[in-house]
Design a protein around this nucleic acid. Structure first.
Lengths: 200, 200
DNA sequence: CGGAGGTTTCAGTGTTTACTGAAACTTCAG
DNA sequence: CTGAAGTTTCAGTAAACACTGAAACCTCCG
């Protein structure tokens, strides 16, 4: 921590704090932050020294960051050590993060929900529970499918679309691609909108 | 845990596990799951009994869930106890979650980044660090602004738009609202695309 | 093949966080 | 005002997790 400028120190500390809110621990957050702002790839020793962590700790942290695909390995000619670098394009980082979180958190949940939906409810309470789970499943499914789809657009186009924001709706209504709210034929699966106030 | 059907038990356990990956702890995850699938509002004692948690623990958990606005207080006529209910519309849950996470995680980060961007870099390393931070800031800003905007659409329209996914791009290009990739005048702020390979 | 330079693993320890059970507090009916 | 029914707080303990330092382990050069 000694050789960090105030600017970098603030950034690194913040990522440490945030790490705990996310699934990663403080150490890993700080290591990532340091690599992210570094002007050139750095190696484990440098990280250990600059953050005052043990070498073992840094090694573990780097392993985890590699598992998250948030850092890339680099080799410097004439140097056997492994250098680490973080993609500096924020979009790329965002996509990686989204993909990994999805794989680790969303997919297991979806799979649990799918299993639950295959069961035959044994009583009324189970029936209601299953309804709720279906609502959750359908929304997650919709969101992830959409994300898959949209993720393939090039960042520039995507940025433009996002800047348009809700204007897209009006534009599409104008062209007739999107009807203004009362659809003639109902959608095949608009289940997640059910109001579900049928208890008691 | 004794009075739970296998269906509900699986759901509750899964949320317990996931709780640790998210910022909330196992207990809180389980309590939420139980309330979410319950056919009617339930009170603290019932939760404590069904999950075999101490009453104090349940009380804390409920407090946290209320802070997250994930459960609502209900009162049953002729009963002084407080009953809890979770909104069963998955969209609403998603929005609440997104808003709270934003308030707790994104906003502090944005504010830290804004401060960092106001500093005058004291050397070359700081300059580069600041560039990276700017990229991150701009992306987060874009994403949250977009989310604000889109969130106000009614769920039905939103669902339709999402089902269209990337098709929106082609549609808009056809109407001329979106140019197919080589823009005549550059955007005011496309900074987050800079490739930033100028070290060494 | 020896050993310099580097990485990974691991037992042990310190720190944080979760959880319990009991006591303190609140509210309300009579 | 009293006490029954309920909720919240809290000190203490148990469990989980992070981190160190040292040893074991690789890998490549000479």
């Amino acid at each position: 921590m000694t050789t960090l400028t105030p600017l970098v120190h603030a950034f690194v500390s913040h990522f440490g704090e945030m790490g705990s809110h996310w699934g990663i621990n403080r150490t890993v957050g700080q290591i990532y932050a340091l690599i992210f702002v570094a002007p050139a790839p750095i190696h484990a020793d440098e990280i250990a020294e600059r953050l005052s962590f043990s070498r073992g700790n840094v090694s573990m942290g780097l392993k985890e960051l590699q598992a998250w695909r948030l850092v890339k390995l680099r080799h410097v000619p004439g140097d056997r050590r492994e250098y680490f670098e973080a993609p500096s394009d924020a979009w790329e980082v965002f996509r990686t993060l989204a993909e990994e979180r999805r794989r680790r958190e969303i997919e297991p949940t979806l799979s649990m929900l799918r299993n639950a939906l295959l069961e035959t409810p044994s009583n009324e309470a189970d029936r209601v529970a299953q309804e709720r789970m279906r609502g959750m499943h359908d929304l997650i499914d919709l969101l992830t499918t959409w994300f898959d789809d949209v993720q393939r657009l090039d960042p520039h186009t995507l940025a433009k679309l996002m800047k348009m924001g809700a204007k897209v709706q009006r534009l599409l209504e104008a062209t007739g691609a999107l009807k203004p709210r009362n659809d003639p034929k109902p959608d095949p699966k608009p289940d997640f909108l059910r109001s579900e106030a049928d208890h008691g």
